[in-house]
């Protein structure tokens, strides 16, 4: 390691604030770039799931209608 101690690594002779804030901003943005598509994917999957269920219940209702019709 170039620095003698952890404190010096953080302080960096007064430049620590610049270096570490750059690092923090970049890290937040890059983590966001991974989290966002994963969330989008989950939302898309939930949507499709909902649609499949909706379709299934519609079909069931139709079949019930057909089955009930002759009796009434």
């Amino acid at each position: 390691m170039y620095f003698d101690s952890l404190q010096q690594l953080i302080w960096m002779n007064g430049h620590g604030i610049y270096v570490w804030s750059s690092f923090a901003i970049s890290a937040v943005i890059m983590i966001g770039l991974v989290v966002k598509p994963l969330r989008q994917k989950q939302a898309a999957m939930r949507n499709i799931e909902l649609q499949i269920k909706l379709q299934a219940s519609k079909q069931a209702a139709k079949q019930k209608e057909v089955a009930d019709a002759p009796h009434s």
């Binding site: 991974v34 966002k36 598509p37 994963l38 989008q40 994917k41 999957m45 499709i48």
Partner: peptide, 8 residues
């Protein structure tokens, strides 16, 4: 990752 979400 973005493309996979977009595909779905």
């Amino acid at each position: 990752l973005f493309a996979r979400a977009e595909i779905l």
